[in-house]
């Protein structure tokens, strides 16, 4: 038994070293790009097109302590949170029903599959007509871009559950409610969380687009403002910031994923 466990752990340590190396490689590539930028900006010397690297970095670090930038970032994040929350609510319910009942699937899937083909930016004019300017259209656009990945992943989660889990639960006396609570929902969770990652990711991407047009607040608005004032270095800085914020959000959801579905990982520490 002990030997068995050791033989599982050993290659895992090897993997850790390998993963570390791969991460370093990623960082190295970013460093190379920055160096190239630094040199190119000096050579081209058109700050409106390619701003000075050092100046951009100054803007970048200033951005994190600048109260106006931060409060606009806060506004944007709040919109993402609100829109995603609505999407989770609606997407999960529709997804669970579609996955569990063939009838609901037949009834709903044509409309779901056609609406999700509409490019997210095509909703902008209509969302302004419906909700005016401000919070309404931005939250709506986040909702629209987040809800479909959630539906699709929830459906595939439900349909991917081994029917024997359901049979097993029934043979132990579980009714419909218990089957949902104890089998379908936990069984769907991994796939749902994948959907959540995609949903919040695309929510974050579309909110910035929406803020270009439909509002005078938020992180996207700051970008448009920087562009209009020809502060290209600030625009670059804001873009880098938005990449980092998106990355952090994604990592947070991955962390949540690992915590909530630790049962999927052989060497993960059992929780609870």
């Amino acid at each position: 038994m002990e030997n068995h466990e050791r033989s599982i752990r050993l290659p895992d340590n090897g993997n850790k070293v390998k993963a570390m190396q791969q991460k370093l490689l990623g960082v190295a590539v970013i460093a190379i790009i920055f160096v190239a930028w630094f040199i190119a900006a000096r050579i081209i010397s058109k700050p409106l097109v390619l701003p000075d690297f050092v100046e951009t970095m100054q803007q970048f670090f200033k951005g994190w302590v600048d109260s106006r930038t931060m409060s606009n970032l806060g506004i944007t994040l709040k919109r993402v949170l609100t829109g995603s929350a609505y999407a989770v609510l609606v997407g999960t319910v529709i997804g669970l029903l579609m996955g569990y009942s063939t009838k609901v699937m037949m009834a709903v899937s044509p409309i779901v599959n056609s609406i999700r083909q509409i490019p997210i930016m095509a909703w902008v004019p209509l969302s302004i007509i419906w909700f005016g300017l401000g919070e309404g259209p931005t939250v709506f656009l986040i909702f629209m871009s987040a809800v479909f990945p959630l539906i699709i992943n929830t459906v595939s989660g439900v349909t991917g559950i081994d029917p024997n889990y359901i049979n097993a639960a029934r043979s132990m006396g579980a009714g419909t409610v218990a089957i949902y609570r104890d089998v379908i929902i936990p069984g769907t969770l991994p796939s749902f969380l994948t959907g959540l990652r995609l949903a919040v990711g695309s929510g974050w991407m579309s909110v910035i687009c929406a803020e270009f047009i439909a509002t005078s607040k938020g992180f996207g608005f700051l970008m448009i403002e920087a562009q209009e004032r020809m502060q290209t270095s600030k625009l670059y800085a804001l873009m880098i910031m938005s990449a980092i914020v998106g990355f952090v959000i994604d990592q947070l959801i991955r962390l949540l994923e690992k915590r909530l579905t630790s049962w999927r990982f052989k060497n993960g520490k059992a929780v609870g």
Binding site: Y165, N167, R170, S171, M172
Partner: peptide, 19 residues
């Protein structure tokens, strides 16, 4: 199905999310 008849599946069908 009923709890009068215990069933062990070929792949065991233990719930992977439960200890």
């Amino acid at each position: 199905p009923s709890s009068e008849r215990g069933y062990v599946f070929q792949n065991y069908a233990l719930f992977p999310w439960m200890t």
